[in-house]
Design a protein around this nucleic acid. Structure first.
Length: 555
RNA sequence: GCCUCUGUGGUGAAAUGGAUAUCACAACGGUCUUCGGAACCGUUAUUCUGGGUUCGAAUCCUGGCAGGGGCACCA
């Protein structure tokens, strides 16, 4: 809004000087002392107009119309035009935040769009490790971002109830007598089956045979299979609860398989797929990717076959405009190939399927692999963080200590994932990388809890918040109005970290202010300072929600 | 080998082509707790390398170096 006002005003000033410019960009200077908005048109146009950029800037400023929202305009450096907004503007924003409350920060970028977000994708019979934690954290945040930006949003999970990994686990259970009721045993059985598959030719053939029997639903296997499947799925549900994720749809590979297989047959007829060395492949090389197998020489299907059928399965449930698939970056080229094959078979899906790759959790000790069995499970990490949080909590003040500690622990993990851009790897050091101090999830939660307790105190003392201007604009007043545009950018780029870093700036500005000022100081300024504190709390709370982090009232 | 992503203080990160590169951790020094110290204030220290584009480059182009990931029946 204010952005448009200023842009328009600059446009008019340029016209007055006799210059037309189509692209006027306003940015927030990094340094708040450089103003609230900064414009670089003068420097952009100076050369073309054959003028000195600083003089041009001065002339533009002379022709700007005055409004109540702008306090002053300055020319600085090589020709920046800096706009300082007025106290009336900032006071009005605080009032606006208090009114909008839970809606504060939302935008209309994706109004009317139907978006399905698929994430987490753990596989039954295999451990839920910290990589899944990462996918879940990013997926949940992206879901909330698009939802807050107006999209009709559905959360989907896609799980491998069939496939070679199941055969490996069941084979391991059969050989070594592991217990299918135990999550731990399933993980070990899988790692064992995988190891033998790689090094023992007989075992490999047995597992392939077993795989066929599973797909055919051989009744001798179904008891163990069902027990193992439910053990895994129930375990996953417990974790989703802690992570505050509720899926609208659960898709299984068993469902997408027949659809995918039919598409492969169709593609083989039309020449999109080829036969090669007894297998059916998609010659991705012809499209700048690489070739992948969609049906093996043993007659079994691959993950590719199943992923090929998935978009149609999704569409049947929810007629999406956009289907987002979130996985680790190691699968990037894999999805390039599968989506290419899919779009050749279904041209009307053009532009509707998006793959967002996220970085990998890297251990100091090397690559984590559930096949090798050297994984850190999501559960153990959450518990470790929770224990750490419990130690820090003051015993007397907190009622639901256990619940709060869990929320703090989860916040620490989620923050460390969401503070950096999505594509980057996280080098995971258990000792150091998850902190409760400084740049952290608990820091944001703590700041909010601190404000809530001030609001409580004000209530008992009968002090009411009141919006009226004071002399001097604080840093938090300058930062808070930026929240909606931060959210919009994060949603547009599918980058939650913009929200994370913004919230950290806000919390830091608040704590700094808090250190210098007493809010409930008994003066007539207290009601407005209280209103500002409340506005910070609303922003933190809504922002934390976007990150999928809970905001406990006491911690 | 080919494709692709990444390289920012001692460490982990941020920066729609903008001004003096921003945070946090660690280290060192301070606030001494009256609204919650999981906090605040201060000090030290950073854009892999050569060239190019631009009024202006951590960012764009190009050569090199280093690392991650992918490249046929795993997911």
């Amino acid at each position: 809004m204010i952005r448009e006002t200023i842009t328009h005003s600059i446009q008019e000033a340029l016209n007055a000087v006799g210059i037309t410019a189509e692209n006027i960009v306003l940015e927030h200077p990094v340094d708040l002392s450089h103003g609230d908005f900064s414009c670089n048109v003068a420097m952009m146009l100076a050369k073309k107009e054959g003028r000195n950029s600083k003089e041009l800037a001065e002339e533009i400023v002379k022709n700007l119309k005055e409004t109540s929202e702008i306090q002053k305009v300055e020319v600085a450096g090589p020709g920046f035009i800096n706009f300082f907004l007025s106290q009336e503007f900032f006071t009005g924003q605080i009032e606006n935040i208090l009114e909008e409350e839970s809606k504060w920060g939302s935008n209309e970028l994706l109004n009317g769009k139907k978006i399905m977000v698929e994430y987490t994708q753990p596989n039954p019979f295999k451990p839920f490790h910290i990589g899944h934690l990462m996918s879940n954290t990013i997926g949940e945040s992206i879901s909330r971002l698009v939802e807050f930006s107006g999209a009709e949003t559905r959360r989907a999970n896609y799980q491998g109830d069939i496939g070679l990994h199941v055969a490996k686990a069941l084979w391991g259970i059969g050989k070594e007598g592991f217990d299918a009721r135990s999550v731990g045993d399933l993980g070990i059985a899988y790692a064992y089956g995988h190891e033998k598959y790689e090094e023992d030719e007989n075992a490999k053939l047995e597992i392939i045979e077993l795989n066929k029997r599973i797909v055919a639903k051989d009744s001798d296997l179904m008891d163990t299979y069902t027990i193992g499947l439910n053990t895994s799925l129930n375990h996953f549900e417990e974790i989703y609860k802690v992570l505050d994720t509720k899926f609208d749809y659960y898709f299984f590979e068993g469902q997408s398989l027949p659809i995918g297989l039919e598409m492969v047959e169709k593609g083989l007829e039309s020449g999109i797929f080829r036969e090669s060395e007894g297998a059916v492949v998609f010659p991705g090389e012809e499209y700048g990717f690489h070739t992948r197998v969609f049906k093996t020489q043993y007659g079994t299907t691959t993950y590719e076959t199943r992923d090929l059928g998935l978009p149609l399965l999704k569409q049947k449930e929810f007629n999406f405009d956009t289907s987002i698939t979130i996985t680790a970056v190691e699968q990037k080229t894999y999805f390039d190939v599968v989506f290419k094959a899919f779009s050749l078979l279904n041209p009307d899906f053009k532009g509707k399927l998006i793959h967002i790759p996220h970085g990998m959790m890297q251990l100091a000790s090397g690559k984590m692999s559930s096949r090798k069995g050297n994984v850190i499970t999501g559960e153990s990490l959450i518990n470790e963080m929770k224990t750490g949080a419990l130690k820090k909590m003051k015993s007397s003040e907190v009622e639901n200590k256990d619940e709060a500690a869990e929320q703090v622990g989860v916040a620490a993990i989620k923050y460390s994932v969401l503070k950096q851009s999505t594509g980057k790897n996280i080098s995971f050091d258990e000792e150091q990388s998850l902190s409760f101090e400084g740049d952290s999830g608990p820091y944001l939660q703590y700041t909010n809890a601190r404000i809530l307790s001030i609001l409580d105190k004000a209530k008992t003392e009968g002090i009411k918040e009141e919006v009226r201007k004071l002399s001097g604009v604080t840093e938090i007043e300058k930062l808070l109005p930026r929240f909606p545009e931060v959210v919009e950018r994060a949603a547009r780029e599918y980058e939650p970290h913009y929200v994370t870093t913004y919230l950290t700036d806000v919390a830091s500005a608040f704590n700094s202010w808090y250190g210098q000022t007493k809010i409930l100081d008994g003066t007539d300024e207290a009601p407005y300072k209280l209103a500002c504190a409340h506005a910070v709390s609303i922003t933190l709370k809504n922002g934390l929600w976007l990150l999928g982090i809970k905001a406990p009232e006491r911690m």
